[in-house]
Lab assay of single mutants.
Amino acid sequence: MLEGKVKWFNSEKGFGFIEVEGQDDVFVHFSAIQGEGFKTLEEGQAVSFEIVEGNRGPQAANVTKEA
């Protein structure tokens, strides 16, 4: 699992990017966010995740919000 911070997330469109120190930003789709209820992320929020190869390159999977 990697750790990063949410760079930005558009809850209307359901996607955004996660910043990872020393690496390129990683695309995140709302469907990759773990948990119940409305799936969104806040700018600057700490998250842990895995990287998988998507249709358009690397993207986040199994995203969990850090306490």
Rank of each mutant, 00 (worst) to 15 (best):
V28E: 02
G22S: 09
H29P: 05
V26C: 09
E66M: 14
D25K: 02
E19Q: 09
A61D: 06
F30R: 13
Q34E: 11
K39M: 07
G14I: 01
S31N: 08
E66F: 13
Q23S: 13
W8R: 07
N62Y: 08
E43L: 09
G54M: 04
G4E: 01
P58F: 11
E12L: 15
G44Y: 02
Q45G: 07
I33W: 02
I33E: 03
K13E: 08
Q45C: 08
G44F: 02
F30T: 07
V28S: 01
I51H: 04
T64H: 13
K7D: 02
I18R: 01
M1D: 03
G4Q: 03
G54C: 07
N55V: 15
E12A: 15
E43F: 08
L2N: 11
M1N: 05
N10V: 03
G54K: 08
V20A: 11
G57D: 03
W8H: 06
V52T: 13
F9R: 02
T64Y: 12
E53I: 08
Q45D: 08
A60E: 02
E3K: 11
T40K: 10
E43C: 15
Q23A: 12
G44C: 04
Q34R: 11
G44W: 02
E53A: 10
I18M: 01
S11A: 15
G4C: 00
D25T: 03
G14K: 05
A60S: 03
G37F: 05
K39Y: 04
I33N: 02
N55R: 15
S11I: 14
A46F: 13
N62Q: 11
N62R: 12
D24V: 09
W8K: 05
W8G: 04
A61K: 11
K13N: 05
G16R: 01
I51N: 03
G4L: 00
V63D: 03
V52L: 10
V26S: 03
A67L: 10
E12R: 15
F17Q: 05
I33F: 06
K5C: 11
H29G: 03
T64S: 14
G54H: 05
A46C: 13
T64Q: 13
F27R: 05
S11Q: 13
E36M: 10
A61R: 14
E12Y: 15
V20N: 07
F38N: 09
Q45Y: 02
H29F: 00
G54A: 08
L41A: 03
Q45N: 11
H29W: 01
S31D: 07
D25L: 03
V63Q: 00
P58S: 09
E50A: 11
F49Q: 02
S11L: 10
S31F: 01
G35R: 04
L2V: 13
P58D: 05
Q59L: 12
R56W: 06
G57A: 05
D25G: 03
E21H: 10
L2C: 11
L2Q: 08
L2G: 06
E50H: 13
F9V: 06
R56P: 06
N55C: 12
K65W: 10
Q23E: 10
E3I: 15
V28M: 06
K65G: 11
G4I: 00
A61E: 08
H29Q: 04
F49G: 01
G22D: 15
F17H: 04
F38T: 10
E36D: 14
E42W: 10
G14H: 03
F49H: 00
S11Y: 12
F27M: 05
V47Y: 00
D24Q: 12
S31V: 01
G54L: 05
F27Y: 09
E66Q: 15
G4A: 03
G57N: 05
V6S: 01
N62H: 12
E21C: 13
S31M: 05
A46I: 12
R56E: 08
K7R: 10
H29V: 01
E12G: 13
K65C: 13
S11R: 12
G37M: 05
F9L: 03
E42F: 11
A46Y: 14
E53Q: 11
S11N: 10
R56K: 13
G4W: 01
S31P: 03
V6I: 09
E19D: 07
G14D: 02
G44K: 06
N55Y: 14
F15G: 03
D25F: 01
E53S: 12
F17A: 06
I18K: 01
G22H: 14
E36P: 14
E21Y: 12
V28F: 13
N10W: 04
G22I: 00
F49R: 01
M1W: 09
A60Q: 00
K65D: 06
V63E: 02
G4R: 00
F17N: 03
F9Q: 02
V6E: 00
R56G: 08
E3Q: 13
F30I: 09
I33D: 04
L2R: 11
W8C: 09
E53D: 11
T64R: 14
W8N: 07
G57S: 05
Q34F: 07
F49I: 02
S31W: 02
K65Q: 11
K39L: 09
E43P: 14
G4N: 00
V20S: 09
G37N: 10
G35D: 15
F15Q: 05
N10M: 04
A60C: 05
I18S: 01
G22F: 05
Q34C: 15
K39A: 07
F17D: 02
E43D: 10
E12V: 15
V28H: 03
F17P: 00
H29A: 03
K5N: 08
H29I: 01
G57P: 04
F27L: 05
D25S: 05
G22W: 04
F30N: 07
A61G: 11
S11P: 15
F38P: 09
A32K: 08
G44A: 06
V63W: 00
G16Y: 01
N62M: 11
T40Y: 09
